[in-house]
Simulated assay, not measured.
Amino acid sequence: MRMTPTLLALSLAASPLLANAAGFDNWPTKVSFADGTELAATGNIAYDWNNFSGDIENADAVRRKEFGATLKKKGVYDAMVYYDFQSDTWLDVYLRLESKAFVGQDIGKFRVGYMKTPVGLDAVTSSRAGSFMEFAMPVQAFYAGRRTGLDWVLERPAYLLQAGLYGGKDLQGDNPGTMQALRAVWTPVKAEANVLHLGLALSQENPRGWRDGRDVHHEATARFRARPEAGLTDLRLVDSGALVTADKVNRAGLEGIFIRGPFSIQAEALQATITREGKPDYTGNGQYVMGSWVLTGESRPYSGGGVANIKPARDYGAVEVLARYSRLDLDDADVLGGREHNWTLGANWYLTSHFKFQANYIKADASRRGVHTKPEIFEVRAQMHF
């Protein structure tokens, strides 16, 4: 295996930071005004190198090139515009209001705009804060992505409630239809370095057909598939194919997080059912469980129903080792989408609050329509975020 010159240069460039890593946490990316309003730039750049066994072509490329801005006044509102220039995809575009500033009591936060839908714990975590380089297969397959709509979140010390209504297409002009979603999280233990999080999320999507620029009608479809937990390949070892005509897509997820000091466990079980006109319902399901140990003693931060990047307590950064098992089953009814299970080992080096390096090794095992494949993947990432 050979690391590309670009990625090697990024890695070597970080080494001088060790002498004064703490100073790199004070970046001038924000400006504050007299009334308490704060304007900030935000960004996330990640460069990946993937090495595949077998006939899959190796690759190195910029994985993410996300830039945007936030405007907020603490306790009153916050707004964000965020775009990924690498994939030409809109990310978050929203305005969120805090009820206490307007009605005198906290009855939750109300957000309108383009935002993530809540079924899939890992998917609602910021892309910059992923413990592994890519989502586990069931999250890839069943996460509904972002939608335009309205949501409400109420958080208390022992629980979090979320409800959302979404409609129309996404900002790329795809996925026409409507969706309703609910998420409930119970946190009987929620303190720094000591968390127990148990959650349930449900959604119902109603896809609809559409007409293209040539006035050709396309039936409402749904599709479940996943890459082998590597981002620089279009290969899907399991794939339901496009299922027509999709009337409803019902998603459900169970989620859990346990954090105790430098140790943590996270798991999800996800399922989605497509109701089809004139054909039997089709259901796919999958699960993953992961464990993390921060060798340098820090803990995974937790807030707002999710985790964030580890903040190093030492000049040489923080080091985390991880393991994950994931499985995905897309065989059901008349659909032979395949089955796959993966083992992943990972290591993360959080050099500062803005620089992160990741390495993952994935051993995949997939069977579809009588074809059995077992690729191995090694991937590394250099990431800068602010």
Rank of each mutant, 00 (worst) to 15 (best):
R2D: 12
M3W: 13
P5Y: 05
L8F: 12
A22C: 01
A22S: 12
W27K: 07
V31I: 11
T37E: 05
T37Q: 07
A40D: 04
N44W: 01
D48W: 04
N50K: 03
F52I: 04
S53L: 01
D55R: 11
I56M: 08
E57C: 01
R63M: 07
R64I: 07
A69D: 04
T70N: 15
K73T: 14
K74P: 08
V81M: 09
Y83Q: 10
D84A: 02
F85M: 13
S87A: 15
S87M: 14
S87N: 15
D92G: 10
L95Q: 08
L97I: 15
F102A: 15
V103F: 09
F110N: 03
G113R: 11
Y114I: 10
K116L: 14
T117M: 05
T117P: 00
D122Q: 07
D122P: 02
T125K: 06
S126F: 03
S126H: 02
R128S: 11
A129F: 06
F132T: 08
A136V: 05
M137R: 09
M137L: 14
V139E: 02
Q140T: 01
A141Q: 02
A141W: 02
A144M: 10
G145C: 12
R146I: 09
T148R: 02
L150F: 07
L154D: 00
A158S: 07
L165D: 05
L165H: 04
Y166W: 07
G168D: 02
K169I: 01
T178N: 14
T187K: 03
V189N: 01
E192A: 12
V195T: 06
L196T: 06
L202Y: 14
Q204A: 09
W210G: 00
R211P: 00
D215V: 01
D215L: 03
A222G: 07
A226S: 10
T233I: 12
A242F: 10
A242E: 11
D247L: 08
R251E: 08
R251Y: 12
G256N: 07
G256C: 08
F258A: 10
G261F: 02
G261L: 06
F263R: 08
I265C: 10
A267T: 12
A269L: 12
Q271N: 11
T273K: 11
R276Q: 09
P280W: 14
Y282L: 13
Y288A: 14
V289E: 13
M290V: 07
M290Q: 15
G291D: 12
V294K: 03
T296V: 13
E298W: 00
R300M: 10
P301I: 06
P301A: 04
A308R: 15
P312D: 11
R314L: 13
E320N: 12
R324A: 08
D331T: 06
H341Q: 13
N342V: 07
G346R: 05
Y350T: 06
F357P: 02
Y361F: 13
I362A: 06
K363R: 11
D365N: 15
R368E: 07
V371M: 03
K374Q: 07
F378H: 04
R381A: 02
Q383E: 04
